[in-house]
């Protein structure tokens, strides 16, 4: 039962990633692309959690946490660059 649930969750999140890729490629403005990239980071965290459950291994947790931190930092840095023209002033 758990295998079927993991496969269904994989399918739904891959569909979500494809929709994010659409918005990333032809988003009309630059904040749209940043938002799509941030959403792709969050869905990648979900994929890593699913892989960890599928292989029943705890090693994927650190990768998910590092992806969460890096996604937040990159989103804040690019938004700050759009707002001020500089990241650290």
């Amino acid at each position: 039962m758990l295998n079927i649930a993991v496969i269904i969750a994989f399918t739904l999140i891959v569909i979500a990633q494809v929709l994010n890729l659409y918005r990333l490629f032809n988003g009309p403005s630059l904040p749209d692309r940043i938002l799509a990239l941030d959403n792709m980071y969050i869905d990648a965290i979900a994929l890593f959690i699913l892989v960890g459950i599928h292989f029943s291994s705890k090693a994927y947790f650190e990768a998910a946490l590092i992806i969460a931190v890096m996604g937040f930092i990159s989103t804040v840095a690019t938004s700050k660059y759009l707002t001020r023209g500089d990241i650290l002033e």
Binding site: A5, V6, F10, L12, I13, A16, L19, Y22, A46
Partner: peptide
């Protein structure tokens, strides 16, 4: 909880789309 989470992620991406 897995299917609920995947459903919510898909809902957010459909909203983005």
């Amino acid at each position: 909880f897995l299917i609920l989470g995947a459903f919510f992620a898909l809902t957010g991406s459909i909203g983005l789309y």
